[in-house]
Structure formats: C-alpha cells, structure tokens
Design a protein around this nucleic acid. Sequence first.
DNA 1: GTAGGGTTAG
Length: 696
Amino acid sequence: MGVVSAASVLNHLLAKKIIPSKLPTDPRSLTSAILSLLRKDDLKRAVSLLFQSTVPVPFSLYSRLFRVCSDRQAILEARKVECHLITFNPTPPTFLLNRAIEAFGKCGCLADAQELFEEMPRRDGGSWNALITAHAQWDRVDKVFRLFLRMGRSGFAATEVSYAGVLRCCGMVREACLARQVHGVVLKCGFGENVILQSSLVDIYGKCGLIEDSRRVFDEMDRPNEVSWNVIVRRYLEAGNAREAIFVFFEMIRKGKCPLNFTVSNVLIACSRVLAAKEGMQIHSYAAKVCLDSDEVVCSSLICLYLKCDELEDAQMVFDQPSAKSVVSWTSMVSGYALTGRIEKARELFDEMPERNIISWNAMLAGYIGCKKWDDVLNFLHRMLSVIEHVDHVTLSLVAKIAAGLGDIVMGKQLHGFVYRLGYSSNLFVANSLLDMYGKCRNFKISRVLFEQMNQSRDSVSWNSFLASYARHGMSEHAMAIFGEMHWETMLSEFTCGTLLAACANTSSLSYGKQIHAFMLRNEYDIDVVVRGAFVDMYSKCRCIDYGLKVFKEAALRDIVLWNSIILGCCYNGKAREALKLYKLMVKDGAKPDKVTMQGLLLACVLEGRVDLGRSLFKSMSKVYSVIPRVEHYELMVRLYSCHGRIDELETFIKTMPFDPTAEMLKMILKACRKRGLLRMEKWASNLLTGLRMKL
DNA sequence: GTAGGGTTAG
C-alpha cells in the first residue's frame, strides 16, 4: 500500500510540473505539451489542456486526438476536441470532421455522428463512409442500407469502405439472396480482390448456411489473412462440420500462417465436439509454441476439450495456470465435471468460485438435471432463485426440463406464465423447451396450440420435439401424420429419422422402417450409434432380427445401449443363444454391462435353460460389474430356477433375498410347484400371495 | 490510417 501511495503522489507532482499554472500561449509549446500527455496515456488532461487553450493547433494533432478518443470510446473528450476544432477554425477541413464522425460512431453516439454529418458544409466520399461505418458498427442495418442508397443518389460512388459496412449488415440479416446480389455488385465494381470484402463474403455465406459458397469464395482468395482463416474455421464449426474446421486449421498451420487466439479457441471447440483428443493435444502444443497457451480464451477452450475427452488431469493442469483463472474457465471446470456425472466435484468447485454469473449457475443446475437427482435439482433451484437477480432464457428452458423430468404439469404451467411475464415467449429456444415439456407431460392439447402459435418462428427443433412427443407415447400414427407435413417446412435430420424409427418400432411398421433406412442410405445420412440403435430396435420389434443383426454388425462404434438393443432383440426373437454369444463378444470388446444388459442376459439364460450360467452371471453383477441387482433381476432368477425345476435352489435363493417375494415371483413359484406337486411350497406361496392381494 | 473476424462457459 505504502509504495502505491508514494508512486501516486510522485505522479501527481510530475503531472503538476508538466501542466504549468499558466497555459502555453504559443501553438508549438501547446502541441508538445498535449503530445507529451498523450504519450503518458493521459487523454483526459490532454483534451482539457486543449479545451482551455485559445490557441489553434495543427490539424494533425486534432486528427491524432480524435483517433485516441475513438480507441478509448471517450465521448466527452471527442465532443471537446470537435468543439475546439470548429471554434478556432471557421472552415475546418472535411477530413477532420470525418474523423469526428468516426469518433462519435466508435463511442456509439450515432445521433452526434448523424447531426455533424447533416450540418457539414461540404461532404466528401469519406464523410459518407464514416457515417455508414458508424451505423454498421452498431448493427443499424436499415439505416446503413438507406444511407448507402442516399450516397449513390447524391452522386458519390461507393468505395470498398462503403461495401464493408453494407456487407456487415448483409451478414446480420442472413439473407442469402441479398448476399449473392451484393457479391455480384462488389465484383462488378472491381473490388473482388479486396481481402477484407472477400473475408466478409466468406462470413456472410457461412452465416446464411451456404457453407459451400463460403468455401468457394475462400478458395478463390489469393492471399487469405488471419481473419479470413478465422472466419472459415468458425463457419465450419457453426455449420456443424467440426472435422472440416479442424482440417482447415491444420491447413492454415501448414501454410505457415499464425492463427489468432480466437481461431485456436474455435478449432479446440471443434475438437471437443468430435472428441478429437489427439488433434486437440497437438493444437495445445502448437499453441504453447506460439505463446497462446496462456491466453484466457484459449485456456477456457482447452479446459472444455480435456473435460469432454475425460482427460481430467490435463484439464486441471490448464486450469491451475494463474492466467487461466477467470469466471469462464471456472464455469468450464464446473460444467465439465457436472456433465460427466462428477456432480459432487462440480459442486465443490462451484462453491469455491470467487464470483459466479448466470451461466455458472445454469451450468451447475444443468449438471443436477443431467443426473436426474430431482431432490438436489429442486434444492439447488430454490437456492439459485433466492440468490441471483435475473434468470435468462437458458434458466427458463432448464426449468422446463425439470418440469418435464418430474412430469409436473403444474410446475410447467407456472413456468409458462412466468415466461410470458418476463417477455420470453417469442424466444424460440424457450418456446421449444416449453413444447418439449408439454409433450413429455402428455399434454397434447396445449402442445398443439403452442406449436400452431409458433408457425412463424418454429424450426426443425420444434418439429422434431412435436413429432417426438407423439412417437414417445406410442401414438405412432399421429407421428407419421406429422412427418408427412413436416418435410414441406423443414429438413429431415438424423434425429427426425431416429424418432420416426422408434414410432415404426412401436407400431411394427416394417415397411415404413425400411423406407426410412433406404432414405437415409440414399441421402448419405450419417448413421451414428444412436440411429443405429433405433434401427436395431425397429428391426427387432418388427420381427426382422436378421436385418437387426446385420445393422449391428456394420457398426464401427458400439455403445452399451446398442449392445443392449441387440441382446434384448435376440431374446425377443427366439435367438437367445445368439444373445449369449454376443455377450462373449461384448466382453472381448471391453464394454461394461449395465442393469439392462444383465436383464437381457438373465432372460437369455431362462430361455435357453442355462441355470448355471445364469447363477454365475447374477453373482458377477455386483462383484465384477458393480451393478446392484434390482427386483427385475431377482424376478428373472426366480423364473430361471422355477422354470427349470431347481426348487431347492429356489428356496435358498428366496431366503437370501433382501426383500419379500413379489406377486410376480409367487405366481411363478405356484406354477412350478403345481406342475411338480410340491404341496408344502405351493401352500406357502399361495398364502403369501393371498396376503399380498389382501393388502391391495 | 477508414474496412473484415471473434466474446471462449449453460
């Protein structure tokens, strides 16, 4: 503290010395005094010195002052400089007034910029450009388009600068048709080689969803610069083509271009999307080489990558760097732990956070929701709402997810009212969440109304969720009908197909299912592990297990759900022996069985009469795979023993069960005992069953 | 010395 105060006193004295009590009277010493203050980064003093002085200064100094005002977004100083300029120069040169317009624009004071422009005695092309740029910087789209037309009518030819402003606005409105027209005009004006305009075009096509056109413009560029590379990487990432984003990034490095921190960040996000840990690590070491590995933005993306790829130590290592500690990276850590199920660790970090914002709170809440620990979810939500000041659209959709998860339509309706009151009802993200919530709560009446209300704004997410709400509740005909309307308005995604396949499975519509399969193959859809699982499920439920097995065997990647689908599918289609064979393959593949797998396997044992295998599988459940046996598993064991006449073992098994036998078990036991004339046990089971029925 | 890109966490 002592050092700091001494330094500030010293600075004070030094500053005093530079500004004499009497203002300099000759322009030369005034200029040098102002320049020396500017060098000391003291814009405020420099401007007040100028403002108090009645001596005119060289035009170059005004220009420099305006520029510093622009950089600092110092509107008060900018106004003072303009005031001095017009007071002591009866006819200020146009280029200086243009600088003033620029400064006002940079400060966001568009009214000042506009006023000065309208009052200028003479304007040149630069004046028009300055005003267009000012409005473009603040995304005043229609203002820019109007000014551009007015400029032409006033007899000034648009320059590259004017087009830069116009193109930025084209990117804002995302109108593909407009973008193509402006592209044509830019080429016609002979500005086709301008790297800034070219980068803008790459950007606009990407923003309009025309990634191929974007790539074409990029490929036609003679000398793309760092910004151009950044744009193309970013657009590929946004178009959902993370692989191409990574590929283009490596191309950039190969060509010896040094990426911006944002480009490194973008490519790391691309890596985390496709879990490309290896490429991510290569990029990490490259970032270290060019000293970008301590950059705040890069660090946050690195943490996100490592956590998504389950490389906890690496994530922690990046986070431990002092330069990486920011709200964003804290939130990345919390979110990474929360979304990978390490919820306690996430909460620990969350509680340690030096500051939190709405995103941090949302990340933690999303983590609890992901674990489906509804008590914890509600507790946390309660605390969250009592601490934070404002919720945002993400919070609202998370709450919709909670209501959907709990099946709590009352909570859902309350939320809906809340959304209206907060003015979020036109937010598509929130509306889609509400639609999903009503669908999951089986309130088709409201979800239909909501869907109709959204007819101006709905997107493929809305359609998919509307479709899924019917498919999920076994209303497959409804789902099919929606599918019929859907393709007029939106693209069919892999997700749509997956949902439809589930509907086909539930209605045993083999021919529809096959059509979807053919449609996806014809159009080269990416058949990922989820869609593959839907195919296996559909074929097995449509009694066409051979197709199911074929689809399964073609899989490059098999997750536990896919294994479960095929094992259960085989059991239901009289191929229990095949199911047990698949189990061996599964163990070899290194997949870890879960409770559903075990259900399938025990069922296969029942069907195949493999009592010994069933017994050892049951024992291995908790010992080897740490899957705690549930009622379903106990029931299957009872079924295994009773169906295959192992009555002695059955008796011991029932005695060791941690709970009383269920009605289902007792019925099976009764059946087995009657078949074999085992009176004592039959009576025991029958008494217990009567007791159970009495309770009901 | 005007003009392009980007805000990383849910």
